[in-house]
Simulated scan of single mutants.
Amino acid sequence: MITPDFRTTLVEAAAGIARELAPPSDHEADLLVVELSRAIALIGGNRTPEQINEWQNAAADELEQFPWSLIATAIADARRRVRYAGDFVPTVIAAIEEPMRRLVAEADAIDRLLQISEG
């Protein structure tokens, strides 16, 4: 049996995971652009300003669907390891996949427990 106190804890946990899974806020989306600018400055080579802008827009479009809590760390790591701009986004996404799966699994488990608690 799920006690009222435990149910309250589950509701709080569900809310926390929902916040973690949320796409970036406007402020976080601005931070994403800053971090992508830092990355392309390191790996951009001889790109023209137009090419840099195109890369930043494409990278932001791909990454802004993921939670900032995951992409911030993945971007920082990729910025240190990736040598070519074409490898940057796939490297970030690869780093995000497992933590994202875990968060989704946790959310599903909590949702099932909440459903059970409702009878």
Rank of each mutant, 00 (worst) to 15 (best):
A95D: 07
D61K: 07
M1P: 15
R112D: 15
Q51C: 03
A13H: 14
W68Y: 12
W68L: 02
S37A: 07
M1Q: 14
A22V: 08
I40V: 15
A22T: 08
E64K: 15
E118P: 04
G86K: 09
L70I: 05
W68T: 07
I40E: 09
A74T: 05
L32G: 07
R102Q: 15
E98W: 11
T91Y: 03
A95G: 03
A13Y: 12
A22M: 15
N57H: 12
V82G: 02
P99H: 06
P49W: 11
E97W: 06
E98L: 08
E50G: 13
A109R: 10
N57V: 13
A39E: 12
D30P: 00
A94H: 06
E20W: 06
A85M: 01
I40S: 13
L10H: 04
N46Y: 03
L32R: 01
F88V: 02
P99V: 07
L36K: 01
A59T: 14
N53G: 10
G86A: 05
A105L: 03
I43M: 14
E98Q: 06
E97N: 10
P90S: 02
Y84R: 13
E97F: 04
R79C: 02
E20K: 14
G16L: 12
D61F: 01
N53H: 09
L10A: 07
P24L: 04
R81N: 10
H27M: 08
I93N: 02
P67H: 14
P49R: 09
L21N: 07
F66G: 04
A72W: 02
L114V: 10
N46M: 06
I75M: 05
L36A: 05
T48E: 11
N57C: 05
L21E: 02
G119H: 04
W68C: 08
R19F: 00
E97L: 09
L113V: 00
A41T: 03
A95R: 08
A78E: 02
R101D: 11
S25M: 07
I116V: 15
I40N: 10
T91N: 01
A39P: 12
V89G: 11
Q56G: 03
A41M: 11
I71P: 02
G119C: 00
N46D: 15
S37V: 05
E50V: 13
L63C: 05
L36Y: 05
S37Y: 00
L31G: 02
N53D: 12
E50D: 11
D5R: 05
R79Q: 13
L103T: 07
